[in-house]
Simulated scan of single mutants.
Amino acid sequence: MSNGGDHDAGGVTQLTLLDSFVGYHLRRASSRFAAGFSESVGPLGMRQVLFGILTVVHDNPGIRQGAAGEALSIQRANMVSLVNELVDRGLIERRVSEVDRRAFALALTPAGEVLVEQGLERIRVNEDALLRTLSPAEREQLVSLLSRIEG
């Protein structure tokens, strides 16, 4: 016999308290985007952090390694190993900076350029699928609102 506190296995689980928190929805949405990234760009051998570095270098050829890390909030020690991984894979070249001889400047190799273009196309397809119910204006508004939270 069931007591009044048991949840029927066939019923809908209520999330009334969680449903009121923005953070809950952000985490769930983030999980969907991360899974989509892994499915679409993972086969290229990319993790989000590595692809982030590649895109920052793509947009800022010759950027100092430290500045790229700062832009992505990657600690210096972690940035060194991540850039080493990209260098070892032939996707980034590390050169001595012409501005500061003590720093390294980063540039994409031709293979890195190709990988960025392939990855961007796959990410666009994934995002279009996830955001298909939003209009272009709503997408812009979503990015704007999230950017304000990021600070």
Score class of each variant (00 low, 15 high):
residue 83 V to R: 01
residue 95 R to D: 09
residue 114 V to N: 15
residue 127 E to Q: 08
residue 46 M to S: 11
residue 64 R to N: 11
residue 129 A to P: 03
residue 54 L to W: 02
residue 43 P to C: 03
residue 95 R to H: 08
residue 108 L to F: 07
residue 18 L to N: 10
residue 107 A to M: 02
residue 19 D to H: 10
residue 26 L to R: 11
residue 21 F to P: 10
residue 28 R to V: 11
residue 121 E to Q: 15
residue 128 D to K: 15
residue 50 L to W: 05
residue 123 I to S: 10
residue 46 M to V: 08
residue 31 S to M: 12
residue 39 E to M: 04
residue 44 L to I: 08
residue 71 A to H: 05
residue 104 F to A: 12
residue 113 E to V: 15
residue 21 F to N: 13
residue 49 V to M: 14
residue 105 A to R: 02
residue 17 L to I: 14
residue 61 P to L: 04
residue 125 V to Q: 08
residue 93 E to C: 01
residue 92 I to A: 04
residue 34 A to P: 00
residue 42 G to S: 08
residue 71 A to Q: 13
residue 26 L to H: 09
residue 79 M to E: 04
residue 72 L to Y: 04
residue 102 R to D: 09
residue 107 A to L: 05
residue 81 S to A: 12
residue 23 G to Q: 09
residue 36 G to N: 02
residue 39 E to K: 09
residue 21 F to C: 14
residue 27 R to W: 09
residue 100 D to N: 12
residue 51 F to N: 07
residue 57 V to H: 08
residue 26 L to V: 13
residue 58 H to G: 08
residue 21 F to R: 14
residue 83 V to A: 03
residue 50 L to H: 13
residue 112 G to D: 05
residue 17 L to R: 14
residue 76 R to P: 00
residue 101 R to N: 12
residue 48 Q to E: 13
residue 66 G to S: 10
residue 43 P to R: 03
residue 16 T to A: 07
residue 116 V to H: 09
residue 42 G to F: 06
residue 28 R to Y: 02
residue 79 M to W: 01
residue 30 S to W: 03
residue 17 L to Y: 10
residue 23 G to N: 09
residue 102 R to A: 13
residue 30 S to D: 10
residue 105 A to K: 02
residue 49 V to F: 07
residue 103 A to P: 07
residue 40 S to G: 08
residue 40 S to Y: 01
residue 104 F to W: 04
residue 128 D to C: 15
residue 23 G to Y: 06
residue 129 A to H: 13
residue 49 V to D: 11
residue 113 E to C: 12
residue 95 R to A: 04
residue 69 G to V: 01
residue 63 I to C: 06
residue 50 L to N: 11
residue 40 S to T: 14
